[in-house]
Amino acid sequence: MRLKIPTDFRIVRLPCTGKIDIIHILRAFEKGADGLYVVGCMEGDCHFNEGNFQARKRVEQAAGILDKIGVGGERVKMYNLSSGEGPLFAQYSMEMVNKIKELGPSPVKLAKQRMQKKADAA
């Protein structure tokens, strides 16, 4: 298809979105990610029946936690599409990247950078 997608994100492949856990999402933010989105199969089309529903629950839980600690729950999102929807994948990636650019860097990332600068100066 040779579709254009932003270069600002890294793809982490999973056997099924049901494999994702809250800690994976939190660790990404802890390591400095500004946003994260999970792309699962269409609801009702999961090969393992409910993997994508479980993923959605975990994404929502992670969003709740990120909201509570001031990082912002809107930085995580779950999308669903079928494997044949390449253009939609490209559209979702642009949508998410634009949204994260609008929100700006994550407060955790900024704090890490400040700490690093302080450590370098010392």
């Binding site: 660790r27 802890e30 955790v108 704090a111």
Partner: peptide, 9 residues
């Protein structure tokens, strides 16, 4: 992880 991020922020 949550506490680390909260206090870091």
């Amino acid at each position: 992880s949550v506490l680390r991020m909260y206090f870091m922020a």
